[in-house]
Amino acid sequence: MKLAVLRETAQGETRVAAIPETAKKFAALGARVAVEAGAGAAASVPDGDFAAAGAEVGSRAEVLHDADLILCVSGPEPDSLAGARAGALLIGALDPFRRADAVRGYAAAGLQALAMEWMPRITRAQSMDILSSQSNLAGYKAVIDAAAAYGRAFPMMMTAAGTVSPARVFVMGVGVAGLQAIATARRLGAQVSATDVRSATREQIQSLGAKPIFVEGVAGIEGEGQGGYAGETSDEYRRAQAELVSSHLSKQDIVITTALIPGKPAPRLISDAQLATMRPGSVVVDLAADAGGNVEGTVCGERAQRHGVTILGALNLARSLPADASALFARNLYNFLSAFWDKDSGGAVLPADDEIVRAITLTRDGQVVAERLASA
Rank of each mutant, 00 (worst) to 15 (best):
K264Y: 06
V215A: 07
S132N: 07
D95T: 13
S234A: 03
V215W: 00
G227L: 01
R331W: 03
A323T: 11
W341F: 06
T123P: 11
G297K: 04
D354P: 00
Y334H: 13
G48A: 15
V283H: 00
I360V: 15
S44E: 14
R121N: 14
A102S: 14
A31V: 06
D286V: 06
S326K: 07
F97C: 09
D354S: 02
S199M: 03
Q241R: 12
T159I: 08
D344L: 09
H65R: 12
A67W: 06
A34W: 06
F26R: 08
F154M: 14
L317V: 02
F329R: 10
G48E: 15
D253A: 02
G366P: 08
R239L: 10
A52C: 03
A161K: 06
G220L: 12
A51R: 04
E117I: 01
A125D: 05
G87M: 05
Y106T: 13
Q305K: 08
A304M: 14
N316H: 01
S74V: 04
P280E: 02
A370L: 07
P78D: 00
T184W: 05
A348R: 04
S247Y: 08
L131P: 00
K141R: 15
G227F: 06
V45M: 00
A370H: 14
M158I: 05
S338G: 09
F97T: 15
A31Q: 08
G40I: 03
A327K: 10
V174H: 05
V63E: 00
P267Q: 07
Q206P: 10
R152G: 12
A52N: 04
A138N: 11
M116H: 03
A167S: 12
G175K: 05
A34H: 14
A273N: 15
T257E: 04
R32F: 14
A39D: 11
R168I: 09
H248V: 13
V33I: 10
I360F: 02
L337E: 14
L249W: 14
I19G: 06
V255S: 13
T123M: 12
Q206F: 07
G292T: 05
T201Q: 09
A4I: 00
V103K: 03
R121D: 13
K25M: 15
I144M: 14
T195E: 03
S133E: 05
V35Y: 08
S250T: 14
Q191F: 03
P20M: 05
F214A: 12
R124C: 07
L114I: 09
F214G: 15
F26W: 14
A374G: 08
K141C: 09
